[in-house]
Design a protein around this nucleic acid. Structure first.
Lengths: 207, 207
DNA sequence: TAATGCTAGTGTCCACGTTCACAAGTAAAG
DNA sequence: CTTTACTTGTGAACGTGGACACTAGCATTA
């Protein structure tokens, strides 16, 4: 299996596995079995083993997976072994929440630059970073930032994305509820939290 | 096709179609073709037609779909035709952002009750709602709320979920990065924004 | 050393979802 | 009325991913 194409669904699950490992490493067991990990995450053991097998198994039969080694492997596959510097554009309610969200750090992300167009906010310092004028966004080139997070209103999202691509951003996490199209070289993931809420009633009994 | 089981993936896409319709209705064209809608959303026309066909086509050949009728149909399928009242638990950075997020209203959601455990926040009014003591959460029964949004730290999420289920909540949108298990009668959708960010580098060129 | 119990890795089958091509239907123009 | 242009609805082929069973490997115990 070692030389097969990796299913997209597998890649989608890897961060979940990583989360499970990072958060349950307090138990500081040296090894963890697929059954145990599956139980923690609420998925199937064979799903986990299958997923890992695509990358060439790193477990030992009869024992399980070495937690530390497995963690490193997944991080390497996801390219999280090198740290990533991100920029956040738009410090509204959502942007501020993202900035304060502790979850990014455990994956090695660092929000190193923040932009907004509100003159009252520009210059303010939040945590370690100072909010800069969005007009200066094009000057981001050379600051070693490879990720962009868009948290601006719908109407401006595409425009911001274009600038981000221009300054060499390779990946965009978009929180605006709209499509963004950019060069195929740049990966865009859009999160629309309202859309997820919108399908919830479908699964609920009609009461 | 009318009597087939509806694929989960189709249900996942319906809110997207609805979003496209709601946001492009400014053009106030009476009808929209699958090709046009697909273009706006960045998906395939035949995918859209196939999805709609599961519910028994509501378009007319040669013309397209009547925007107003289609919108109503999708809302009905997703059970968004009746409004939903939601409660938000946890008014930290993320909770506050959710509360201020305008995207919920267009789907007919109303955040009608808000809870927190921070005594400084309790009693504060944000928009139309007043933050209540989370200790009073069990008294939510009878207030006609059927959705719960969890935005509390990891450790408390399961506990809050249990209470929500007790008071009769039928669906939960969980923003805590952990698994929540509840009665099978209750649908849980978990959003972990850090997890989505975590798979972004995988798709990026190694630079 | 032999036996037992547990766990990873993987080939195979199956179910689901996507793509596509085409028939059927509508409207507008000639 | 006929023709043309367009669009929906759907059966069928195709591809992908998930479920599972089974083999092989490791460790522990006797």
């Amino acid at each position: 299996m070692r030389y097969h194409k990796i299913p997209d669904e597998t890649v989608r699950r890897l961060p979940l596995y990583l989360r499970g490992l990072l958060f349950s490493s307090q138990d500081l067991q040296e090894n963890i079995s697929s059954r145990k990990l599956a139980e923690v995450l609420g998925v199937n053991p064979w799903q986990i083993r299958k997923d890992f097998s695509y990358f060439g198994g790193f477990g030992t039969p009869g024992v399980g997976y070495n937690v530390e080694k497995l963690t490193k492997q997944i991080k390497k596959i996801l390219k999280l072994d090198i740290g990533h510097r991100a920029t956040l554009v738009g410090v509204g309610n959502l942007g501020a929440a993202i900035l304060a969200y502790p979850g990014f750090k455990i994956y090695g992300f660092d929000i190193a630059a923040v932009f907004d167009n509100n003159s009252k906010k520009i210059g303010q310092k939040i945590g370690d970073v100072t909010i800069e004028d969005v007009a200066k966004l094009p000057m981001l080139k050379g600051r070693q930032i490879d990720l962009g997070i868009i948290a601006v209103p719908r109407g401006s999202a595409q425009e911001i994305a274009n600038i981000l691509v221009d300054v060499g951003i390779k990946g965009i996490l978009n929180f605006s509820p709209c499509r963004i199209d950019v060069s195929k070289k740049v990966k865009v993931i859009t999160i629309d939290i309202a859309m997820d809420l919108a399908r919830l009633p479908y699964y609920m009994p009609s009461s």
